[in-house]
Amino acid sequence: MYKNIFKYDEMKRSEHMAVRQTVGWYYWTHQLIEISGPDVVKLLEYLYPNDIGNIKVGRDRYTTMLNENGEIIDDVVIMRMAEDRFWISTLFLTYTDDWIYYHSEGYDVDWSDITDEWDMFAVQGPRSKEMVNSIVENPVDGLKFFSHEPNKIGDMEVLINRGGFTGEKFGYEIYCRKDRTDELEKILKDTAPGFEGKQVTEFQVMAWTLPTESGFYYMRDLAHTNPMEVGLDGNIDWEKDFIGKEALLKVKENGPEKEMVGFEVPEADIYIRSKQYGGPGEAVYIDGEEEEVGRVSKMVYSYVKEVNNGYILAKKDKLNVGDHIKIHGYDAVITEKKWI
């Protein structure tokens, strides 16, 4: 008989719960583009729907990137390193790099892939601040969410960014030069036990279980959606021109056709196909009805709530919180898209 690949896995559970209860640290290097020049703000304002110009030096912003149809083609964190210099943290460098190339004509900017220059470790959880403070030269007490500042660990120059993909109030990302990675890893490994911390090693915990519990998206969730369908339209700057604006205005006028909703499946040992593994995801039906109302985007497990949880990309207004549905014959219930 099939047993849930999350529920009974004590390794995944302990790594996940370390982040929720004490502190978890892990190698979390993303792809990085550095872009600079006199026209950099102008270009980024055009490439991204959220306001970029008002990001202060030392601050970050999460934003989607859209195509001309208003569909999300990447979601990134933009970090302002200087007035005319930004880092773009992405997991889809090949797409994003091409996208910048195709749209940069006429803008006085330079950009390069600096992924091979920097590594990054995430330190996440309630005791993360304590842990980070125990190793850095300057305490990070004053660091606001989505802010970064240079610091030192021993003689190692690092950049500390407060943020993360776990939904934790306290979470930090430590950037170091590639040639110091092993050294930093050892420091984190040696320091974590003092804070009841643990190394997170499982991809599924880093990219799926922790973010999903917090209502975050992994890029695959967002494929062929627009910001309004997935609730990422709140910070769009409608006053400026950006790629996809025209299409998005029509969506705004007519209303989105789809929406992302949460769901839970109480029965433990079940498996439901979802887009997180590729493919179309399992079809979703309302109890007793034949119309397909959505497809499962993701199904993982909430170790905090002890339930199978995930997202469904559904037809707009077809599924409401509390609705009982069938997914591949299993009883499921629609929920808010957040579990902590």
């Binding site: 390794m11 991809f203 599924q204 493919g279």
Partner: peptide, 10 residues
């Protein structure tokens, strides 16, 4: 067919 599991250890 289909991918059924994709993780660091399995």
């Amino acid at each position: 067919g289909r991918c059924q599991d994709f993780g660091t250890y399995r």
